[in-house]
Design a protein around this nucleic acid. Structure first.
Lengths: 213, 213
DNA sequence: GCGTGTGAAGGGTTTCACAGCA
DNA sequence: TGCTGTGAAACCCTTCACACGC
């Protein structure tokens, strides 16, 4: 097989972030007009063993050149196919504090297929303000706004004590993909895909691995 | 064995975040004056199977009561021992944009053993301002300030194009634990523990798992 | 009886060693 | 010769089934 045959294949939670890292790197290389890359180089840039890089990539079909390496733009396109990064995803942020603002103002999401289409807060002073490319709406508008803007992914960037309520509202409004930045364990129905980014846990994990090495 | 014997034991990258989640939950429960918890409940709150919860906990010695469950405050203390969460870690943030400010202003890190002691930016308007509990210093002060403040962990919250340079400065200044929020692959010497939180990758992973379920 | 603790089985992931191709 | 691709082995992680203790 010489084509990308693995669109049906499901990849695990270990593999996907790794592949997304490979993608990040080849996109970077393409911008710098590099046309070829070795598994050895990808390995160094991602802290992944070179064999594992090759194994991962070989999963999708063989598009490496023995003795030469991988063609950067070809690799990029295959990875995008697999990851589904070619269509735009519409994002909504709930909570326009510092974290919410950081997300909304981040340049570069859009060229990665991620687009903010709505933002919500309950603080009157923030409603109607422009943040990034969107106008902040009142949190009571979530239901209506999410349908109007065809939101795919909801991002929870509110204080912990209201995070669960916001999650409920998002789900009711039909958002089945949630990224949770709050420091509480959310409970959502099984059909919802939930991913947590807990900054305290990241810091503590880092601390653990610095000490225990 | 009935004691916590596993201080020497090293846990993997899969296990540690899970344990930190257990800890988060028992800390929460303790605040709510709950004194006892079943593996079944921890399971529901963390999306981890109950057997796995018991296996994880049994790693540290048996402190569950068959037929009854776990004593919350005893469990908390053991987990803190294992994770090393009893000493305070000093943190420094480089880049006081929205993300840096979000971190500096987050209430609750301190009671988790994480304390911000320094913040840096290169934008003149920000220098000298108070953010959270620290005064923002110029980025040129990193070397001196890090020694003065005994920084353990450096957090990179600057734009991608300067992230590598900042990483270099941190390492030169003696910071060997780095949490990187920028969207580039940093290269650091092997003695440095580096952990990456890439928001674009989190969003893309979430998208992948929403579609492929 | 109920819930924890644990050896054994099962499944998945990573490494090893080497085959194959430019 | 150099680098990719791949079966086999090793390793780790998770689940299963059940023993044990309150």
């Amino acid at each position: 097989m010489n084509d990308c045959t693995s669109k049906e294949k499901k990849f695990s939670d270990v593999v996907i972030p790794r592949i997304l890292n490979y993608l990040k790197i080849v996109q970077q290389l393409e911008k710098n007009n590099k046309t070829n890359i070795l598994s050895e180089e990808i390995s160094r840039m991602t802290n992944t063993s070179a064999v594992l890089v090759r194994k991962d990539l070989a999963n999708f079909g063989k598009f490496g050149q023995p003795g030469t390496g991988y063609d950067v733009s070809r690799l990029k396109n295959y990875l995008l196919d697999i990851i589904g990064g070619k269509e735009m995803s519409n994002l909504a942020v709930v909570g326009v504090g510092n974290l919410g603002s950081a997300l909304l103002n981040y340049k570069g999401f859009e060229e990665e297929g991620l687009k903010f289409v709505a933002a919500f807060d309950k603080q009157e002073g923030k409603i109607g303000k422009i943040c990034g490319n969107v106008i902040v709406e009142h949190i009571d508008n979530i239901g209506e706004s999410i349908k109007r803007n065809n939101v795919h992914i909801g991002i929870i960037a509110v204080p912990s004590d209201v995070a669960q309520a916001v999650a409920g509202t998002l789900v009711e409004s039909g958002v089945y993909s949630i990224l949770n930045f709050s420091h509480v364990a959310l409970s959502v129905p099984p059909e919802v895909t939930l991913r947590n980014v807990d900054l305290a846990i990241e810091l503590k994990a880092l601390r653990y691995f610095s000490v225990n090495r």
